[in-house]
Amino acid sequence: MDEVEEREKVEPKIFDKIGYDDIPGVVMTDTSAVSDFLKKTKVQNVLNWGRKNSLWFMVNAMGCCGVELLATGMAHYDTDRFGIIPRNSPRHADVLIISGYVTKKYLPALKRIWDQMPAPKWVICFGDCAISGGPFYESYSTHQNIDEVFPVDVFVPGCPPRCEALIQAFVELQKKIEAKKDKGTDY
């Protein structure tokens, strides 16, 4: 314990002496220079290219649309070829697919999943229920207008939409990311 404390005391002095700030070409990570460099230069295009080709989605089957979501992730549709891979942990996922009705009871859990996902992250509204409430749109237990809660990029209508529609949604999302029009990345 003492050792650590001592080192903490000593370290600033060493930095002062060496003065990393002065070395040309070296950027300290505690400045905003790195994030400016990543966000405002052409590097962003490269990053976006990488991001759009690895849209791992959260397997979060909520309503009956969830079945289509699961089927999309399976071998038949083979979404791996687009870099779209189902993940079971929100910490691995880039895309949250709201696949069904959001009940008042489930909304806090969904928000929690969303908060656990590392940025940049995107939302797809999949199915009528997620868009407007669908068949349950005047129910006492569903939450309407879910796009006021999450920054939704793509809406997929249908009850349920087909798996191909979900793949197209991913393609649309890729186009949006490429054009820097998406809501998930902070530019």
């Binding site: 868009i131 407007s132 409430g133 005047e138 006492y140 569903t142």
Partner: peptide
């Protein structure tokens, strides 16, 4: 306390869903 299946329940979403398809 809301007792949603009573006939006089008023707590249904009163604004029409924005994105009604």
């Amino acid at each position: 306390g809301e007792w949603p299946l009573r006939k006089d329940y008023k707590g249904y979403p009163n604004k029409t869903a924005k994105n009604l398809v």
